[in-house]
Simulated assay, not measured.
Amino acid sequence: MTSLLRLVRLPNLLIIILLQCLIRYGLIIPILAHFGYHPVLSHFRFGLLVLASVCMAASGYVINDYFDIKIDRINRPEKMVIDNGLQRRAAMFFHVILSFIGVFVGLFISYIARKETWALMFLLIPVFLWYYSTTFKKQGFIGNMIVAGLTALVTIVVVSLEFAMLVRVHGAPIINSEACSTAWFWTLGFAFFAFVTTLIREIVKDMEDVLGDEQGGCRTLPIEIGMKFSKIFVSILTCCTLLSIWALYFSFNILNSSVITLWYIILLITIPFILSMYLLYKSSTPKAYHRLNTFYKLIMLFGILFILIAGQLF
């Protein structure tokens, strides 16, 4: 059981669960209440969405490790699960089971929400994850963008499903309501934050794994443009993210009128991001990059937890 939990990256799955629950219960429902609407989506059906998301993510982690055995023997032999406690055949079987559950539950959600595009999405995600593990991951920045995009999608599907169900009760006009535009605006903001922090983490992870990736024929960003320019690129992404956050803060009264929001952004977002750039330029070993990657997870967690404050602003 311990091997399976390590294989599916349990901490990452818990972050997905936390993110989706906070988006719905800490942000979307308070916004709906502010505009006089009640949620239509049941807790059970929302739980199915979370289950589908977690199964899809877990299946992606399994198939990624399945195809990364040679590289992991170089980068992190002590942390390998497949061929070191779990047979490859068992890992593939586990991947198929997780993918099946994710697709089946996803198709059911698509049916009840009457969203045909969702059905296609849930069918294509396992294929996409397979090709990511076999092809896209070795193409560096393309693979980083795919992982970041899928992370952002985790937040977007929550608001999309919520309003798909509301349409069935209130009709299409609710899509043009202020409640819908407000919910989408805030959700996309957190999706953007999840996208950028994941993209940065993926690049830093490539810095950590550069030795094994190079021998495995990968064309990651650190291999293609070097460590120095990869660090510069990450720093630019970090600065742009901070500028975007502060621009939003000064642009909206609902944000800049809140003292808690000001100190939260300073202490738990801005200072950690600035510290991360310092740690980035000091890092030169796989262990240092691994610690930095963990630090970025903490920054992402702080960003997610801000949802609890954002929901109280309405």
Rank of each mutant, 00 (worst) to 15 (best):
214 E>D: 08
311 G>M: 08
223 I>D: 05
225 I>S: 03
312 Q>L: 10
82 I>H: 01
195 F>V: 10
299 I>H: 03
27 L>H: 03
272 P>A: 06
77 P>Y: 03
40 V>K: 14
225 I>K: 04
219 R>C: 13
42 S>C: 13
199 L>P: 01
63 I>M: 08
174 I>G: 04
57 A>P: 03
284 S>I: 01
111 Y>I: 13
178 E>L: 14
221 L>G: 02
276 S>H: 05
8 V>Y: 01
56 M>V: 07
170 H>Y: 15
180 C>S: 13
167 V>F: 03
223 I>Q: 07
146 I>K: 04
154 V>C: 09
302 F>M: 10
230 S>I: 06
21 C>F: 13
93 F>W: 11
256 N>R: 07
18 L>G: 05
266 I>A: 12
46 F>P: 06
101 I>N: 05
73 R>T: 01
167 V>D: 05
270 T>G: 01
279 L>H: 08
144 N>V: 07
138 K>F: 02
215 Q>D: 01
83 D>I: 01
71 I>A: 07
101 I>K: 01
41 L>T: 11
161 L>H: 07
52 A>N: 04
164 A>E: 07
93 F>V: 12
75 N>R: 05
16 I>Y: 08
184 W>K: 06
158 V>H: 07
178 E>A: 10
163 F>P: 02
193 F>D: 08
143 G>Q: 07
131 Y>W: 15
251 S>R: 06
254 I>Y: 10
257 S>V: 01
73 R>Y: 12
124 L>C: 14
155 T>L: 10
107 L>G: 02
290 H>A: 10
191 A>R: 06
156 I>S: 00
98 L>R: 06
219 R>H: 15
25 Y>D: 13
175 I>F: 14
67 F>K: 04
288 A>W: 02
206 D>T: 09
